[in-house]
Nucleic acid binder design. Structure first.
Lengths: 259, 259
DNA sequence: GGTAGGCGTTGACGTTGCGTCAATGTCAAG
DNA sequence: CTTGACATTGACGCAACGTCAACGCCTACC
């Protein structure tokens, strides 16, 4: 019964702890660095030794980690700076939001894939000019703020089916008007072309959620010029205006109008 | 009609492109660094200038990015090294798997929160000894491989309800036997205690998905010693064995048995 | 023509949670 | 004493940029 012979060491080196709990020594040193789990003792040689209390704390850490909490958050909870129930509630909310985001994204990918398989390239006009009101929620939100999409969708959904039909028809008619003018070999600077350009820009401005609708004249200018360039550069756009020649006419008219 | 006066520059500086497309100049330079979108021209001053083709490529990049593809993957698709349909299919699978993972994790957090609110601390014995077969899928998978959970669950689900009841009863009976021995002030090294220790370890080994069942004697040893220490260190464990004193008895017996 | 201010450039660090060397010291065993 | 296993402290890597920092270029105004 010597003093130095304790029945149980109650103390383990780092690899033992790692093996017991299924983590790695690197992880334990990382937690040490972050201060969320410090060894019970550090030997003269610098070795880390953990005790039973440390093991328990580690298990709590691992459970909370498995629940998706961040390490700083775990530190807060363990040190009682934060109520665990509150932390878990917030985590549920975060996970729910992330789930929704993924669901929408997945649906978006599926629709895109289906459209490609249906043989049709996606309608570029709708994609970039007016924004598809089902496919690009995340994109719109990220680019122009979280409420941009909400406003845009609210605007679109506030329309009756008849009005939606009407808006789509208007777009088609504008395109046909462009094609006619281009075929007639009119000048892009002629009054008719400029009137059409004005209508085109008005339309772009009318769709909430795009830079054109932001109210900033410079953003509108950049957006219109960028679109005009793409009408020409991408044949899928150009097709909406009767081909590249038609698209060049539209571009010229828009540049003159807004330039 | 001088040669130098082109009607349209068809070329924009970096901020113009950023404004048009809703990204940032930093992103464009990043894409340049990665080689997925290079400027049409770089001026003598080092300035980047993009043309219509670049705008179109950028829009394609942004769409694919919005669909969740990684930038290297986008590069592959755009350079036609990879079929876009294949890429999208894989993306759908990835998103589905991630969705499932999040759903399980969220459910896990909810159950944990509910358990805490129900007043009962979670049953530590079930949590770490035998593993809860609904709550710790991710944890088990990450620690001991993707099929560990599958094997473990298959094992548990292969039991009839009667057998499940039986297993739980056995666990409870073992605990009661421990409590009895401890109260009787028996020696942890006595045959009865060692027999119980043997049964305890057999039980730990019988549950697939734990380090104890891995077949590695060293892993078993570390796992048993770690658990024994935690029985003492955590009162929630200790409660299963009639308190700290009972837990110390169990620990001593297990350490003697496996040591 | 000098200067302020705005836009451009190239580094380089920060983020999240460790994995993975690299260089080197320590300890138990043969 | 040597070997080999295990320990230590850096430090880089990953994904996709955000965010300074330090400095050059260009336009406009005085």
């Amino acid at each position: 019964m010597s003093e130095t012979s304790s029945r149980t060491p109650a103390e383990w080196p780092i690899t033992a702890v790692a093996a017991m709990t299924g983590t790695t020594s690197r992880t334990l040193r990382h937690y040490g660095d972050l201060g969320i789990l410090t060894p019970a003792r550090i030997g003269e040689n610098g070795y880390r030794y953990y005790d039973g209390a440390g093991l328990v704390r580690l298990q709590r850490i691992l459970v909370l980690r498995q629940l998706g909490l961040s390490l700083p958050r775990i530190a807060e909870v363990l040190d009682r700076h934060t109520d665990i129930e509150t932390a878990l509630e917030e985590q549920i909310e975060r996970l729910g939001a992330e789930q929704d985001r993924l669901a929408r994204q997945r649906e978006s990918v599926r629709r895109t894939l289906a459209a490609i398989r249906a043989g049709e390239e996606p309608d570029m006009t709708e994609m970039f000019d007016g924004f598809d009101h089902t496919q690009y929620k995340d994109e719109v939100e990220r680019r122009w703020g979280a409420d941009a999409y909400a406003r845009s969708t609210a605007w679109w959904e506030s329309k009756t089916p008849a009005e939606k039909q009407q808006l789509k028809r208007e777009q088609i008619e504008r395109n046909e008007a462009w094609v006619e003018l281009a075929r007639a070999d009119a000048s892009p600077t002629a009054p008719e072309a400029q009137a059409l350009a004005a209508a085109h820009v008005d339309w772009l401005r009318s769709v909430p959620g795009t830079p054109a609708a932001s109210g900033d004249p410079e953003a509108l200018r950049a957006y219109v010029l960028g679109l005009a360039a793409m009408y020409v550069a991408d044949e899928r756009f150009a097709a909406n205006y009767g081909g590249t020649a038609g698209a060049e006419f539209v571009r010229a008219a828009l540049e003159h109008y807004i330039g």
